[in-house]
Simulated scan of single mutants.
Amino acid sequence: MKKNILHSILLILVCTSELLYAQKDPFKGYKIEGDMLVFVFDKRDYEKATGASQKIKIENLDIKNVVVAGEFNGWSKDKWEMIKIDANRYELRKKLSDFTDEFSWEFKFVINNAYWAEPSRKDKNITRAFENGYALPAYNLKMYIAYPDKNGNATFTLNGFNNAREVILSGSFNKWDEDMFSMIKNEECWMLTLNIRPGTYQYKFIVDGKWMEDPENPKKVINEFNGYNSVLDIQGSSNFLLNGFQNAKKVILSGSFNEWSENICEMNKTEEGWKQTLMLSAGKYHYKFIVDDKWILDPDNPVREYDYNGNINSVCIVK
């Protein structure tokens, strides 16, 4: 189930943010907050660190600084220095847009620009470290566009199957991994909540080793094995701002996301101008403002494109 899929269909997934069951801990080393990726180092999560020729207990290190090193920055030991939050924790915030859509990276934390913090073998998001094609006696952390989070934006449920021993959630958001996302059984169903970067994804359940699509989700596509994958669309919040125009009576936001409607998306007046927030799927959209019946481009957005009719529009890209 790690091959490319043939087609895609959008599905708006209605998600809950609070669950009445025990949710597994998030992955180690990072979390996603809105449009930000937050690297998190907590020295209490690590026992040992590896230097040039020795291993040392974390508790014996006088930590001066912590750096994030990974595939995304050439494993640099000094470029991405973290900010100290308290006696144990360090954080570094980066924009999600700084990372590619693939968003599957290996990384590690470097203490004092010299010691690599070794993750626990119990952490779910670890992977064997390699160098020049050879496996090393060490592990790296790995980040994906999805990770378990009880306050996440996508809740998956599978009703029934009370006699199943194990149910795994697998999809394009975790490279179709067959072990990573174990679902949690309650009295009525199997359930798991993830925090997922906005986008369109395909997924299936693995019930005691048997793959199956989501029986409650009518949106599905044919895969390369002549079976079906379920499809979901995770939407992100997009803010549209028009500064000024305080004397305008009405401003409408119109674009490819609402079939260029001239009335359904009226903007809200603020002290600075006009504002509207929409939930949009990942993708590129054309838009304009209608100020008292006059169409205008977004004056603060330099990104513009011509459409098929030769009209120039402002462009919004949701990642």
Score class of each variant (00 low, 15 high):
N268A: 06
E18K: 15
L61W: 01
D292A: 06
M191F: 01
F72L: 08
D293I: 07
N247Y: 07
I222F: 14
D300P: 01
V14E: 11
L19C: 12
S53C: 10
E47H: 15
I145T: 03
D42E: 06
S170L: 11
I206E: 01
F225R: 10
Y144I: 01
D233C: 10
N309M: 13
I32C: 07
E18W: 10
A117T: 00
H7T: 15
I32M: 09
S170T: 15
A164S: 10
N125Y: 01
G283I: 04
K24M: 07
Y115S: 00
K3V: 09
D300V: 02
C265E: 07
L194K: 05
D214E: 06
I222A: 07
D292N: 08
K79M: 15
V318G: 08
R197Y: 05
K185H: 07
M212F: 09
M183T: 05
D293T: 15
L232N: 03
N163H: 09
S314T: 05
A154H: 06
N239R: 12
F72S: 13
E187D: 13
I252V: 14
K55W: 07
D233N: 15
Q54T: 14
F103C: 08
T193W: 00
Q235C: 06
Y147F: 10
L141F: 05
W211S: 04
K284D: 11
T100V: 01
V251E: 10
N153P: 09
V315N: 10
D208P: 08
T270P: 08
E47M: 14
I85D: 01
I252M: 04
G255R: 02
L158Q: 01
H286T: 04
F240N: 00
I168C: 04
Y203P: 05
